[in-house]
Design a protein around this nucleic acid. Structure first.
Lengths: 209, 209
DNA sequence: AGATGATCTTTACGGCGTCCAGATATACTT
DNA sequence: AAGTATATCTGGACGCCGTAAAGATCATCT
């Protein structure tokens, strides 16, 4: 039980196998897709035996969770950047939504792991919902900036949830080939995304009647 | 090559193994969840050898596709019923959305297979998008009934897509525990769903400013 | 009755997640 | 400096999995 030493962080044989395993997993994820992401393949990619990961992760799920956490961090950064670069206040929310979908489109395998990988399907990862500057909180804050009433907590939560659902739904749909004609008709994928977000008002609209 | 006989539909040994396999798969899906849905387990449940399914389905994916197809049919029926029972024209679209999410909540494993199971992740199943009375077409028709301009094809497609994304996003989120407090604050899960749909207009709203 | 061909079983292969028993190298104790 | 404990990695094993090939079985057609 040595807990007093200074150079605590550097492990023994490999250097930093946890890190290497996560990197190997992300490499495999990009090159071969989620279905090729077996624990054995990750170990192989990292150059260790199939059982080695078990000294750093309880099981495969825990490794995937670590990968997913990095994905959420990346997403938070993407949203943060989009938030800053948005021109008008009014456009900020849509910019956030577009950034969300673009992230999912550019990292489809990682995005899948972020929702699928955590073996606990009954709740979102805590850092999505709770921590400051989490993706969810950024959306909520942006809503307030855009004019939502921060004192009406329920309405604010509903609106944040609505934005989140819209972005997630679109993120999973946008890759389907069926929308290709629509994308070309509108000129670009981003135009398509913005168009969809604009039409989200359909649920509260009377369509000019 | 006997193709002339009348009693064509009834196979040889088992009676109707394809049917039995699909039923066994759906039984397993409900009782054990999607992760327990191995081809061997399905064969076991149906009382045949592990290789028997290969005379009726090319591989595991094709069996899952058959299961998914039944799911889409069920969903189409749910939407159709909701469409008829909606009170006002204005409420029809939201009723459709609620019915969609309720279906996904009541058949979570099946819903997952419907999107995950088909090994072609690049397009939706054809009967979702193309056939008459498919879920997608029902949404589009309802939009027209509610006042959308049917001559502006692009806007109509965008609105339909927006509705579909909203419902799918909410369907995947609604099961998360994080929203429990919101649901109880609003009195019921349906109130929560309607609340979220109402707030979808956020993307085109100035929030009273 | 005999041939045909679809259906099912048996057996087998490689890959998977995971556990366990050793080997090895590092850190702590004295 | 020596010795012990402990964290790390390897090799092998177990029972699953998806799938393929070869043989048995049985309804149908001639």
């Amino acid at each position: 039980m040595r807990e007093t030493t200074a150079a605590e962080s550097r492990p023994y044989h490999h250097g930093d196998l946890s890190r290497a395993l996560i990197d190997a997993a992300r490499r495999l994820l990009e090159s071969e897709g989620p279905s090729a992401l077996s624990l054995r393949a990750v170990a192989r990619e990292a150059g260790v035996s199939p059982a080695a990961p078990y000294h750093h992760f309880k099981d495969k799920g825990e490794l995937l969770e670590a990968v997913a956490t990095e994905g959420w961090d990346m997403l938070n950064q993407s949203l943060s950047a989009a938030r800053k670069s948005a021109q008008s206040v009014k456009d900020k929310l849509t910019a956030l939504g577009v950034a969300y979908v673009v992230f999912a489109r550019e990292n489809p395998s990682l995005y899948r792991i972020m929702y699928d990988g955590s073996r606990n399907k009954e709740e979102l990862p805590s850092h999505v919902h709770m921590e400051d500057d989490s993706a969810y909180c950024q959306v909520r804050d942006t809503l307030v900036e855009a004019g939502a009433d921060p004192s009406d907590e329920i309405a604010l939560e509903l609106a944040t949830t609505a934005a989140w659902c819209a972005a997630h739904g679109l993120a999973e749909m946008a890759s389907f080939k069926q929308f290709d004609t629509l994308k070309t008709a509108l000129g670009s994928e981003e135009a398509f995304l913005r168009g969809v977000f604009e039409h989200m008002k359909i649920f509260a609209d009377d369509h000019g009647k």
